[in-house]
Amino acid sequence: MSRARTRQARVAETIARGVMGAMAASVIAVALFVLAYIVYQGVGAIDWQFLTDVPRDRGRAGGIYPVIIGTVYVVTATAAFTLPVGVLAGIYLSEYAPRNLATRAIRLAITNMAGVPSIVYGLFGLAAFVLAAGIGRSVLAAALTLTCMTLPVVITATEEALRQIPQDIRQASLALGATKLRTIYKVVLPAAAPGIVTGSILGLARAAGETAPILFTGAVFQMRQTPDSPLSQFMALPYHIYAQVTSVPDWNRTLVWGTVLVLVAGVSIVSMVAAAWRSVQRRKIKW
């Protein structure tokens, strides 16, 4: 081999490494910038009053207490709908579904559900839950809409977690005379729980940050108190941010960025704790 070719290859190697590295570095840089900017802009707003007071002067003063509570309500309701249905569907797909065309179609539908734009879910929620089902714009309608959006995430997470449980554990349980059902809920599910819980929390955290699906299904901008029933309307962090910026002249920068910080911190702390918990559990259980 000629030496020139080797040298050329080495130069190409260096350049390629540099370019790829720069791409990766720019991703890190953008993420760090986003994080730093939010913290920098928002941290000044965070105090006890901000977290416990109601918004005043169309959000230009006061706090965001009912806004936080609204988001908590909606996400809790979403979790209550999504988790049982999603986990059961995941168990069915992983443990019971026959390998046939119908199952393949279901899988395809689930991955496709995950790709439907959030605004289309918003339209669907408006047409189906708010109008057709007559629920009206409410916590319930918004939670049902977010449920449709989060279901594929929970189903996929459950399936994935169950698939990682080795087959011989199942066989050992069956060989001891346990039925399939008992095998699943005594052996397989407990072992898969970290994956299922974490995957679901990540999905729900994402739902907490969504604006488009709740835009027409129950989120409102001005409300003095927290929602008192599943059928009342609510304020929510992402919608509050959007509404301030687009429809309040001279919006209070500090307070809006403070709201952003609360939202992002909430979503990412919950996600990170969940992910860290999963990796600790995984390290404990090595197959």
């Binding site: 050992a172 060989a175 001891l176 052996v187």
Partner: peptide, 17 residues
């Protein structure tokens, strides 16, 4: 019921977690 009378030990150790 049969498997309660006929137990099995597998090739690789497979204790439950």
């Amino acid at each position: 019921e049969l498997r309660m009378r006929v137990g099995q030990v597998f090739q690789r150790p497979n204790p439950f977690p």
